[in-house]
Design a binder for these strands. Structure first.
Lengths: 220, 220
DNA sequence: TAAACTTGGTGACAAAGTTACAGAAAGAAA
DNA sequence: TTTCTTTCTGTAACTTTGTCACCAAGTTTA
């Protein structure tokens, strides 16, 4: 991307008056990160608000005994509010954001963030909207983990990850992290799906043969 | 409580200038609800911000198949932000807030809420603080449900619920809802604790005999 | 090529959730 | 009071999920 007007890309900034947007173009700056880079973690909480232009940030949580669960993903056009939330709260938490792809984002200083929230109703709405989005994402995770069945959740996730195509490049361990369970549980379930002819397994790759059945199991 | 200055009771309003507080005393009004009353639910989302003066609101989530889990509690001096969050997001969610005791609260109209967030840094900080508090509460719930062991979680909850004393007036079913599990699982675990001499069971009541052991199991 | 690491397969077992009842205690109705 | 009804608890059998231990095949590194 050329050095274009990124304020055009976000709901929260597109609606702002021209002079404010020009101010933003000066005060904020572009940051990039390679795939796999940690964007925030308990050790490293940035004091900026991130607006994601390109790529995906995967936010996950790791337990004491090392198991991990994916909470949600921040996609292009969205902002990463968990960090700003957690600057205020001084309680311990163990969520981490990792660049799932190479990413490009706008980094907005806290002072400017505060000022925008104060002065611009459109921006305020965007921020609150982002918060509620994440709250609801988490409600969904709680529901899934507490009450969901592993076969349904796995089918759901496979459909979500294939993205139009039929192949998914993913290890059983990665899928286990998606759902917050153990690798063996995923392997078992995948073999079961394979027996039903719904998919083919190979090292590091899953080929979906019968998306309809998977979709049916996952109720979408 | 007499018709006092409730703005003194909240972090978010105590720090405001006198004239703003006087304005609030006029625009907001006192609401009360009896124990057991539903404060908000998917069917009924109030468009006000609630400031809780007295009592406790229990926020829980119910699954399709009827099982339920307690997410967190809103206590006196806190505000109930989940509702405001969810007005914006149009996605479905199934959290409900129920008055766990008789409650007394201040109801602030949305317009006034917006204005305060815009104009008053102290209020803004309070609101963001409330959001992050809930986000972190939910992170904790996810961690517990996904990775926690039921004996540890139950011990923890028993210690939290006894509140200084030794008796807890609660049914096994209620405890199951606290942890998002089944009644039978709780019964089984309570019998185990009883065998170890940590507590006594009777209908609708649990008497803790050895809080130290429970506390040790729950790692606090 | 050999060694080290990653990925996946498997069996045995433990923990937690489900199903299906039964009986005791408390409260309401006759 | 006695009977009926509801609520609460106990329990056994079974299924699902999570854990542990270990091995084998593929991949990368030395």
């Amino acid at each position: 991307m050329k050095n274009e007007d990124w304020t055009e890309l976000f709901d929260g900034t597109r609606a702002l008056p021209r002079d404010v947007r020009d101010r933003l173009l000066k005060s904020a700056h572009l940051v990039t990160a390679k795939e796999g880079k940690s964007i925030f973690s308990p050790d490293h909480i940035p004091d900026k608000l991130l607006f994601l232009i390109n790529g995906v940030i995967r936010v996950s949580q790791t337990s004491e005994n090392g198991r991990e669960i994916v909470l949600y993903r921040v996609e292009a056009g969205q902002s990463c509010v968990l960090t700003t939330a957690c600057i205020l709260a001084e309680e311990a938490y163990n969520a981490e954001g990792v660049a799932e792809t190479d990413i490009k984002a706008i980094s907005l200083p806290r002072s400017e963030f505060d000022r925008l929230v104060a002065e611009m109703p459109a921006f305020r709405k965007f921020v609150f909207s982002a918060y509620s989005r994440r709250l609801i994402d988490l409600l969904r995770v709680v529901d899934d983990v507490a009450f969901g069945h592993i076969d349904v959740r796995l089918a759901e996730r496979l459909i979500a990850l294939c993205g139009g195509g039929n192949d998914i490049a993913v290890t059983h361990q990665k899928l286990a992290v998606e759902l917050g369970t153990a690798r063996e549980v995923i392997s078992r379930q995948l073999v079961e799906f394979q027996k039903r002819g719904w998919l083919e397994l190979s090292r590091g790759k899953i080929t979906l043969n019968d998306k309809a059945s998977l979709r049916k199991l996952s109720n979408n």
